[in-house]
Simulated assay, not measured.
Amino acid sequence: MSQAATTAEGPEGRIPVLDIGPMLAGEPGAVDHLARSIARSCEDTGFLVLAHHGIPQPLIDGCFAAAAEFFALPEEEKLALAVGEINLGFLPTGAQVIRTSTIHRNTKPNLNESFYISHDYAPDDPAIVEGKPMVGLNRWPPNLPGFREATMAYYSAMRGLAQRMLPAFARALDLPPDYFKADFAEPSCTLRLIRYQPQPEAEADRFGFAPHIDTNFITFLAQSALPGLEVRTREGTWLRPPAIPGTFVVNTAEMLGRYSNDRFAPTPHRVVNNNRAMRYAIPFFFGPANDAVIKVVPSCTGPDNPPKYEPLLYLDHRLKLNRTNFAHRQAQASA
Rank of each mutant, 00 (worst) to 15 (best):
F90Q: 05
G21C: 05
A65H: 04
D44M: 02
G26N: 12
I55V: 15
A35V: 02
E69C: 07
G89S: 06
C63A: 14
V83C: 10
Q57R: 08
A82F: 11
L73Y: 14
P16K: 04
K78W: 06
S118G: 15
A67K: 01
A51K: 09
H33I: 00
K108I: 08
L73E: 11
G94R: 08
I103G: 10
A25K: 09
L18V: 06
P109Y: 01
P109K: 00
R99F: 11
S101T: 02
L59A: 03
M23N: 12
S101M: 05
F47W: 03
I15G: 07
C63K: 03
P11T: 10
R105C: 12
A65S: 09
I86Y: 03
Y116P: 06
L48I: 12
A51C: 06
I98Q: 00
F64I: 08
A39V: 02
D44G: 00
N87M: 11
N106C: 03
Q96C: 04
F115A: 02
L34A: 11
G46N: 02
C63I: 00
A65M: 03
Y116A: 09
E113T: 08
D125I: 07
P126T: 13
K78R: 07
F64S: 07
H53L: 04
M23L: 15
E12Q: 15
P58Q: 09
L59G: 01
F47S: 05
E43A: 06
E85D: 15
A72S: 15
R105W: 02
G10W: 01
D120I: 06
L91M: 12
L88T: 09
I117S: 05
